Simulated assay, not measured.
Amino acid sequence: MSEKRDPSVYFAFTHKIFSIEGAYFKLTHDTREPCYYVNLGEMKGAIPTKSICMEFGIEEDSSDARLLGTIGRALKYVREIRPNDSIPRELLDGSASWSIEDRHREVAQGRITIQVISWLKGNEEILLNFSELETIANDPQTKEKVQEAFRGIAKSLGIRREDVVSKIDEIVRELAYIEALREYNAKIKKISTNLQRLANIYRRDRSTSEDISRMQVLIEPVLREYDMTFIDIDAQTCEVMIMLRNFQPTIETIRRKRDELHQRFMVWHDIEKKWEKLIIEEGQTTERLLKETYQFLARNFMQSQNWRLGGV
C-alpha cells in the first residue's frame, strides 16, 4: 500500500475518480481552461475542474475540493499535473519548480560579479556576453577585487560581510532562472529567423509566401514584448547596492518576472522542439511545420494582432 501524501504539499486526492490510470490535468488548447483528462478507450474525455465536485459528489469543504481549486493556478507553472504530483513550489514558497543548468548560474554569477567589481569604480555595468563574463571570471585579480568590494559594500550598508555574500548568492540563484529564460527566448527568436530564411526559399510559392508573411506579422510583436520584459528586468537589477538595500522587494520582483516569462514560454514548448529539429529546406516536412506554426500563432496570438493582419 502506497504511503499517504500530505495534501498541503501534494495533489493527494482521495476520491476514486482521481485513481483512474493515466488521468491528468491540463489546460485546453483553445480556452486554456483547466480540465481533467481521462482515457475513454481510444479517445480522451475532458472534464472541466470546476464541474468535478458537482458531477462526482465531492464536498465543497473537502481536501479534494481545495486541491481542485489549486489546479488552475498550478497549471500556470507546469504543463500537466497527475494525481499525487507535488504542488508547484511557486505556490508553496515562491521558488521555481523547474530546473536550470550550471551555465545559467555561471552567467548570473558573472553578471553580478561585474556589477560588484564595477561598484568599486563607481560605475556599475551589465555584461550579457557569456565569453566576456567567462574571461573576467577567470581573471586571477577578479576574486581579490570581489572580496574588496564585499568589504566596501558591507561597510556602506552597515552590515556584516557575510550577510552581503549571503544576499548576493540568493540574488544570483534567482537571476540564474532569468538567464535560463533568456536562453529560451533566443530559441524562440530563432523560429523568426528561420521564417525569414524560408520566406526567401518559398518566395516563388505565392500561397506559402503569404502564409509566412502572416506568421511574421504575428510573431514579431510577441518577440518585441519578450525583449522589453528582459530589458525591464535588467534595468531593475543593474545596481547591486539598490538590490541589496531593497533585498526582499528585489527577490519578489525577479520571481514575479520569472513566473510571467515562464508562463508565456510554456506555450511554445512543443512547437519550438519541432523547429529545433527542422532542416531549413523546401519540402513536405517544412511545409507541414509551417502550417502547424501558423495555427499555433493564430491560436495563441491572433487576437491582439487582428488589426495588423488586415493590412497584410
Score class of each variant (00 low, 15 high):
Met1Leu: 14
Arg5Gln: 12
Pro7Ser: 00
Ala12Cys: 03
Phe13Ile: 08
Ser19Asp: 11
Gly22Cys: 05
Asp30Ile: 13
Thr31Leu: 12
Cys35Tyr: 09
Tyr37Lys: 05
Asn39Gln: 14
Leu40Met: 10
Met54Val: 15
Ile58Lys: 06
Ser62Tyr: 09
Ser62Asn: 06
Asp64Ile: 09
Arg66Cys: 11
Arg66Glu: 07
Arg82Asn: 09
Ser97Glu: 05
Ala108Glu: 01
Gly110Phe: 07
Ile112Tyr: 08
Thr113Trp: 00
Ile117Pro: 02
Gly122Tyr: 03
Glu125Thr: 14
Glu125Ile: 14
Ile126Asp: 00
Leu128Asn: 13
Asn129Ala: 09
Phe130Gln: 09
Glu134Cys: 03
Thr135Pro: 02
Pro140Met: 06
Pro140Asp: 00
Ala149Pro: 03
Phe150Gly: 03
Gly152Phe: 04
Ile153Tyr: 01
Glu162Pro: 06
Val165Pro: 03
Ile168His: 01
Leu175Glu: 03
Tyr177Leu: 10
Tyr177Arg: 02
Tyr177Cys: 07
Leu181Lys: 04
Tyr184Cys: 05
Asn185Val: 01
Leu195Gln: 03
Arg197Leu: 11
Arg197Ala: 09
Asn200Gly: 14
Asn200Leu: 13
Arg206Asp: 08
Arg214Ser: 09
Ile231Ser: 13
Ile233His: 02
Ala235Gln: 12
Ala235Gly: 11
Ile242His: 15
Met243Gln: 10
Glu252Gly: 06
Arg255Phe: 15
Lys257Asp: 03
Lys257Gln: 10
Met266Phe: 05
Val267Ser: 08
Asp270Lys: 14
Lys273Met: 14
Lys274Glu: 15
Arg288Gln: 15
Arg288Leu: 14
Leu290Ile: 15
Asn300Gly: 06
Gln305Lys: 12
Gln305Cys: 10
